[in-house]
């Protein structure tokens, strides 16, 4: 790999942890971190085929000459996040960057959404990232070093869309989690920022290929196309780079092809 002319995006020597690396955006962020020079630990959210997908990402990271390893982290449980995060930090010898990439989509009418479903959507999308912030900050403080946290959410957290109430509320909660947490942990040298995804090409759960209205929704983006996973990674690198973003915290950056700006 050629050495970039600018050192602003250089993550050489940094230790990153990407949680939810089995998701396309998680995998893309892990690859981008590795390309920028970081060693990247990966955590799958479930101990099933997610681990297989995560190991594939691990091999890609290793092929770039970086250290990598795969873990399983049950982000539904704060205690599991705490224990697993501590173990990972111990094994990789420190921690500089944490990216959180859970995504559990549900779309059904309010009146048919059960208590359990609401709770699960909040747990998977919001509580998970709350726990990740809590314990990433704990590790950074314990190591007495600055740290970067990148959370991921959806533009659905900024706008209303029928049938997505629970998911939209969770995504909106993450947006304000970024703002509040950033202010709270800033004195410790920890920066927290968010990436809000628009209509991405892997999101067949919300953009069903056979749904004509969903295909029309894609045309609501200024760029008139779905986003790709590789278009998420560079922003995560930017937000995780000590030299590029020393003075940016508590902000949400959409990767949505201009969707939120469309009238």
């Amino acid at each position: 790999m050629t050495k970039p002319k600018s050192s602003f995006f250089d993550l050489a020597g940094k230790r990153a942890l990407v949680i939810g690396a089995e998701h396309p955006h998680g995998a893309a962020i892990a690859r981008a971190y590795a390309e920028a020079g970081a060693d990247v630990a990966l955590a799958a959210l479930t101990a099933d085929e997610a681990v297989v997908r995560t190991r594939a990402v691990q091999r890609e990271v290793e092929a770039m000459g970086r250290k990598s390893s795969t873990y399983v982290m049950d982000v539904m449980l704060g205690k599991n996040v705490e224990v697993t995060m501590r173990q990972i930090v111990k094994e990789i010898g420190g921690l500089d960057i944490v990216a959180a990439c859970p995504d559990l989509f549900l779309a059904k009418p309010i009146e048919r959404t059960s208590d359990t479903e609401v709770a699960r959507v909040m747990q998977a999308n919001f509580n998970s990232q709350y726990f990740i912030v809590r314990h990433a900050a704990e590790e950074f403080r314990r190591l007495k070093q600055p740290g970067r946290i990148v959370l991921t959410t959806s533009v659905i957290g900024e706008r209303g869309l029928p049938n997505t109430t629970a998911y939209a509320a969770a995504a909106g909660a993450v947006i304000n989690l970024v703002r509040s947490a950033a202010v709270e942990v800033a004195p410790d040298g920890i920066q927290v920022n968010g990436i809000a995804l628009g209509w991405m090409d892997w999101m067949t759960d919300r953009l069903r290929p056979d749904d004509e209205e969903a295909q029309r929704a894609v045309r609501f983006t200024a760029l008139r196309r779905q986003g790709r996973a590789d278009e998420v990674g560079p922003l995560a690198v930017y937000l995780s780079s000590e030299r590029a973003t020393r003075y940016i915290t508590g902000q949400i950056f959409p990767v949505d092809g201009g969707l939120l700006q469309h009238l």
Partner: peptide, 19 residues
């Protein structure tokens, strides 16, 4: 009339995704 609350897609776009 709620126009600016939405805007992620056409008015008839109602995703369906259940577990």
């Amino acid at each position: 009339g709620g126009g600016l609350a939405g805007g992620l897609g056409p008015i008839k776009f109602r995703p369906q995704h259940e577990w």
